[in-house]
Amino acid sequence: MKIPQMHIPDGFINAPVSVLFLAISAFFVFLALRGAKNQLDEKVAPLAGLAAVFIFAMQMINFPVAAGTSGHLIGGALAAILIGPWAGVLAVTVVLIVQALVFADGGLTAMGLNVFNMSILATLGAWYIFRFLQKILPKNRIGFLSATALAAYLSVPISAIGFTLQFALGGTAAITLDKVLVAMVGVHSVIGIGEAIITVLTISAVLSVRKDLVYGASNSKVSLIK
């Protein structure tokens, strides 16, 4: 069995909160559009486009766990560390929009909710955690990959907290919030382990061959190669 991805469908969160998050997400995407243009000029479109395909393809790879179950990547932290926070937000956002519009995966009215959780919280959030950790951890390969691991790990429960917040604001009142929070964060704290391992393995594979392509490593002067 493959664990499907958590794309919030229509009607799970009420309409006003869905629309509110549509606006919040739109604001952040606007910031990302500006930020990415500054970072990459007119190169943004092809590079973020191909990065989106890459994230989408990575999400398709099944990572076998045991007894026929498999997990897969969400990719927020991976996107942010590889191509930078703003281009990363754009890539993940586009993946979500295409999934909803072309593959009917994720509700149209829930788009803002999903973009907020996975693209703003998981991607941008992972980036700031990564940057913070990079400052306090040793500036070598181990430090770099540890920062990557933690950022990727935390991005998953953070995204779940976002979900819980949305649920608190616009979900059904039929269940107490603490139960949702415990269940969501609990499950995602486990899923995060897989996210961290896959992200670290993938980034270290890129580092060994093309360190220059890893945005998160672009300002580090020490050798990150094995």
């Binding site: 007119e42 190169k43 092809p46 590079l47 486009g49 191909l50 990065a51 395909v53 890459f54 393809a57 990575m58 790879i61 099944n62 990572f63 076998p64 766990v65 045991a66 590889l82 191509i83 391992i197 896959i198 393995l201 993938t202 980034i203 270290s204 594979a205 890129v206 061959v209 093309r210 392509l213």
Partner: peptide, 29 residues
């Protein structure tokens, strides 16, 4: 791919895929 032991190989393919995608992005540009 049977279990987590094989993740390294899968992720290395992922890394290679990123490099190819990035380079394609540059060629497309």
């Amino acid at each position: 791919a049977k279990g987590p032991k094989q993740w390294g190989v899968l992720a290395r393919s992922g890394g290679a895929l990123f490099i190819r995608s990035y380079e394609r992005g540059e060629r497309v540009h």
